[in-house]
Amino acid sequence: MTATLIFYLLGAVALVTTALAIIQRNPVYAVIYLVKSIFALALIFYLLGAPLVAALQVIVYAGAIMVLFLFVIMMLEITPVSARKSSAPGWLSWTPVVLVALVLAVMTLLLIGLDPVAEQGIPRWHATPRDFGYALFNEYALAVKIISFQLSFAAVGAFHIGLTERRRARMEKDS
């Protein structure tokens, strides 16, 4: 009962902070609100029996990814993007509204309206880090390797893209 209450509470927090995040004009505030939302989600994960994932959510998302966002924002000295008159035709400006409404309707229908399992309750259960690790490195060993490659590619790619022209030239001269 307490858990149920906490779930709704956390859900409300996540929704509110997310909504606040997306309406911010200043990206720093947006990131801060998003961190709050991620904390709330991490707690929900814990509540749903995924303690390790909850911890990783906090560490990886809040601790690494969001911090990366902040770094970039501060590095770039971003001036808020001013509202511009859209050059797109009139009907195009209504498109996002319609699209959002439609996606909402379709997802509601698909996930909740038509899904037979939707009415089932989520049982109290939790996966120990041991179970988790066991499954991860046995059944999903290949996926882990692929993801590792993925991460190293991303690191190289980010490094390459981040080079300025001047530094690139200098590096080419050195090598």
Binding site: A3, T4, Y8, G11, T108, Q120, G121, I122, P123
Partner: peptide, 11 residues
């Protein structure tokens, strides 16, 4: 049961 699946999906 913590919460119906429905509610989680709505969230």
């Amino acid at each position: 049961m913590i919460v119906p699946m429905e509610h989680l999906l709505v969230l």
